[in-house]
Amino acid sequence: TGTRRLSDLRVIDLRAELRKRNVDSSGNKSVLMERLKKAIEDEGGNPDEIEITSE
């Protein structure tokens, strides 16, 4: 578990975070980053400090 910047995430991490939020996880990295950023902002979170749970 740790905090990472949105830009540091790999595509696989972006998809996992989107799936956790029940958000569409298809598309390229830039699309996924925008989608995740919006989802985090909608939750009231900070997209520059994403809580990542290692699996």
Rank of each mutant, 00 (worst) to 15 (best):
N28Y: 04
I12G: 15
D48G: 13
S25E: 08
D8S: 13
G27V: 00
G2F: 09
R4F: 15
D8I: 00
S30V: 15
G44L: 02
S7F: 06
S7P: 03
G27K: 00
K38V: 11
L36D: 02
G45L: 10
S7G: 10
T3I: 15
G2W: 02
A16T: 12
D8R: 03
L18V: 01
R4H: 08
R5H: 12
R4A: 04
M33Y: 06
A39R: 10
V31N: 12
E34A: 15
I50Y: 03
E17P: 00
G27E: 01
A39T: 13
D8C: 06
D42N: 13
P47N: 05
E41H: 03
L14P: 01
E17I: 04
L6G: 03
I50F: 05
T3V: 10
R35S: 07
K29V: 10
S54Y: 08
G44W: 02
K29E: 11
G27I: 00
L6A: 06
L9K: 03
D48V: 10
R19K: 10
D42Y: 08
G27P: 00
I50L: 14
E41A: 12
S26W: 03
E51A: 12
G45K: 11
T3Q: 03
L36E: 03
E34Y: 06
E43C: 02
K37M: 09
S54P: 14
L6E: 03
D48C: 11
E49N: 06
K29D: 06
V31A: 14
I52A: 12
S30D: 11
K38N: 03
P47E: 07
G27Y: 00
E49M: 14
A16M: 13
L18S: 02
D13G: 02
P47I: 05
V31G: 07
R5D: 05
M33L: 14
D24V: 05
A16N: 07
E41R: 11
L9R: 03
D48Y: 05
D8L: 04
E17R: 00
E55D: 07
D42E: 12
S7R: 14
T3M: 10
S25W: 10
E43F: 02
S7I: 12
L18I: 00
L36N: 01
E17Y: 02
T3L: 09
M33N: 05
L6Q: 02
T53I: 12
K37E: 08
T53Y: 12
E55N: 03
L14D: 00
G45A: 08
L36R: 02
R35D: 02
E34R: 15
D42G: 13
L6F: 05
V11Q: 05
E43I: 04
R21M: 05
R10Y: 04
E17W: 01
I40F: 04
L9N: 03
E41I: 09
T1G: 07
E55A: 15
L14S: 00
E55L: 01
D24E: 06
N46P: 06
D42T: 09
N22W: 02
R15P: 01
N22Q: 10
I40S: 02
R21T: 00
R19A: 15
I52E: 14
T3C: 04
T53P: 10
P47C: 14
L6Y: 04
S54A: 13
V23C: 13
E34I: 15
K29N: 04
V11K: 11
S30N: 13
E34W: 05
L32C: 05
E17S: 02
N28M: 05
V31M: 12
I50K: 09
K29F: 09
L18D: 00
R10K: 10
D48N: 14
R4I: 15
T53K: 13
R15Q: 12
K37I: 06
R19W: 06
T3N: 11
S54I: 11
L9E: 01
L18W: 00
I52M: 07
I12M: 15
K37G: 11
R4G: 12
E51M: 11
A16W: 14
L18C: 14
D8V: 03
N28I: 08
I50N: 10
I40V: 08
R4M: 15
D8H: 08
T1S: 04
L14F: 02
K29A: 12
E17D: 00
D8T: 07
R4Q: 10
S26A: 07
L18H: 00
V23L: 15
A16D: 11
S54T: 13
R5N: 05
I52F: 15
T1Q: 00
R15T: 07
V11E: 05
R35Q: 04
R15H: 03
A39G: 03
R15F: 01
E41L: 13
R35V: 04
V23K: 14
E41M: 13
L32R: 01
E34G: 12
S30C: 09
A16Q: 09
E34C: 09
R10C: 05
D42H: 06
V11Y: 06
I52W: 14
R15N: 01
S25A: 11
E51S: 14
L18T: 00
I12N: 09
L18Y: 00
S30R: 15
N28K: 13
L14G: 01
G44I: 05
D42Q: 14
R4V: 15
E17A: 09
G27N: 00
L6S: 03
L6W: 02
M33G: 05
L9A: 04
N22G: 13
K20R: 15
V31Y: 06
G2S: 14
K37Q: 10
T3R: 07
E43A: 10
K38C: 10
G2C: 14
M33I: 12
D13E: 14
R19C: 11
I12W: 11
E49V: 12
G45V: 06
R5T: 10
L18N: 00
T3F: 13
R5Y: 05
N46F: 06
T53M: 06
A39D: 02
I40E: 03
D24R: 06
E17L: 11
L14E: 01
D13S: 04
M33F: 11
S54N: 08
R5C: 05
V31L: 12
R10V: 08
I40H: 00
A39Y: 03
V11D: 13
G44K: 07
K38L: 09
I50V: 14
N46G: 03
R35M: 05
M33P: 02
N46H: 07
E51F: 12
S7Y: 06
V23N: 06
E17Q: 09
S54H: 08
I12T: 10
E51H: 15
I52C: 11
D48E: 15
E41V: 09
P47F: 11
D24I: 03
N22F: 08
L32I: 07
S26Q: 08
E34T: 15
R5I: 06
K29P: 09
D24C: 06
R10F: 02
N28V: 12
G2M: 14
D48T: 10
I50S: 09
E43T: 07
D48W: 03
D24P: 08
V31W: 04
R35Y: 02
I52G: 11
D24W: 01
V11A: 08
L32P: 02
L6D: 03
S25N: 07
R19H: 11
D8F: 01
S30T: 11
N46Q: 08
I52D: 10
R4N: 05
K38E: 08
T53L: 14
R10D: 14
K37H: 10
G45R: 11
S30I: 09
K29Y: 12
K29I: 08
S25I: 07
T1Y: 00
R5G: 07
L36H: 02
G2Q: 06
A39W: 09
A39I: 14
D24K: 08
L18P: 00
L9I: 04
D24Q: 06
R35H: 06
L32Q: 03
V11M: 15
G44R: 09
G44Q: 04
A16V: 14
G27L: 00
R19V: 14
G45H: 04
L6P: 01
